[in-house]
Design a binder for these strands. Sequence first.
DNA 1: CGCCAGGTTGATTTCGCTCAAGCAATGTGG
DNA 2: CCACATTGCTTGAGCGAAATCAACCTGGCG
Lengths: 233, 233
Amino acid sequence: MPCLSARIRTKTEWDALTPDEIDLFNRKVVCRTYPAGQVIFVQGDPCKGLYFIEDGLIAARKVDEEGQSAIVRLAYQGDTLGYRPLLAKENHRATAEVIKDAKICFIGAPTMHRLLRSNPRLGMLFLEHIAQALGEAEERLFQVAALSVRTRIIHLVVLLRDHYGTTTSDGTLFVELPMTRRDLAEMIGARPESVSRALRDIQDDGLMDLSGRTVRVDQIDRLIDELHHGLHI
Amino acid sequence: MPCLSARIRTKTEWDALTPDEIDLFNRKVVCRTYPAGQVIFVQGDPCKGLYFIEDGLIAARKVDEEGQSAIVRLAYQGDTLGYRPLLAKENHRATAEVIKDAKICFIGAPTMHRLLRSNPRLGMLFLEHIAQALGEAEERLFQVAALSVRTRIIHLVVLLRDHYGTTTSDGTLFVELPMTRRDLAEMIGARPESVSRALRDIQDDGLMDLSGRTVRVDQIDRLIDELHHGLHI
DNA sequence: CGCCAGGTTGATTTCGCTCAAGCAATGTGG
DNA sequence: CCACATTGCTTGAGCGAAATCAACCTGGCG
């Protein structure tokens, strides 16, 4: 059972690999499973290679000396972790922690550089991928800098919809929040209590229905509208 | 007088170009000067190519429908603007505005793709560059999400030191803040009044001396210490 | 000159944080 | 099987940092 299955590969930058290179990849790769809560690498560590996420959910978290903490990125199935420090030739600047049980394939830096040298197209696809990641980071930077907690929460629910949303036959949307309130808070630069209150506010306004970690949204348009036109118009 | 002078080129990703490619670049490039305040491209515009900054200072600003606004990146001499949308194949997601009079060279997307195809090393250097930009964006994301206005201002002064700081023979550091209070505020996700007050607080604590847009710092260590050990320890 | 953008300061309000209590769900050991 | 920790979540009360609103100063500049 190869780690880099065709089904996942074709949706990622690894699609650029030739059969020979896929073979090299599969010979060099080391796969293992990680339970939720496990740490994959720690901020400050040298970057030994890439982590390809076959399944699960991982958060990249930054912490400073005073214990202030924020989640700067989420990585889903098909995503790759560690490419930023590998390509920037830096140490890890965040700690990667498993949020939902994961299967992760590690590929060492030397193999990675060999692949990048032998296959320019792989580099181009990474370039495209990292350019999109930069766009998302700048988008979140704008949100945290300029928007209220309530608005940021709505943005987050809409974001999580991509991977954790399902729509029933009658058009109702369910989003399963994949993490604790604490982690949701760290995603948007807030406190867990503020997240609770903001979620309740939004619920009281009839925009969503919350039970545990499941959000039910009847009219997604009303949520999206608030993002575009602001409150109470 | 070629736009891509050797002095600037060698410090940037354009160092990868062969003499032939430099020739192509110089034939295709269109250079002009922009006074402060001028807009280079607007968020939402399709990305027509790259803007290489020969001199000056440019801010990438995001604005939403309600007028909320934040500066998500600064671009200095030698930096390139527009590579993110070009590589991610997206429209511009920010507006580029000249902060300090600039000389900027435009290179069209077709030429750029031709260069990227002919020279894989150029792609690798862009990869390295954009990986660093992502690191900086995530760093600022963390700061805005987790730190106080006062701390963010100190981070900003330390950041601006790289390009706008000079140290006199007696070790005193002068940093020339290159923009208005309003723009400083938009850099850190705050209001101009809050920036004024935070600067005054820091001054009252004897950490810096402020006159107009010039910051004098006698003991840079004390500023850096506050960043690492927090306040009043 | 008068005007205006940039900047500071003050008064007041608001949003979100801190601290603290309480509750439900889950786990653990006797 | 039950007493009890533990963890995640919510809610409340009070507080504080920063936003808002507004006045006023300053130095260009037409």
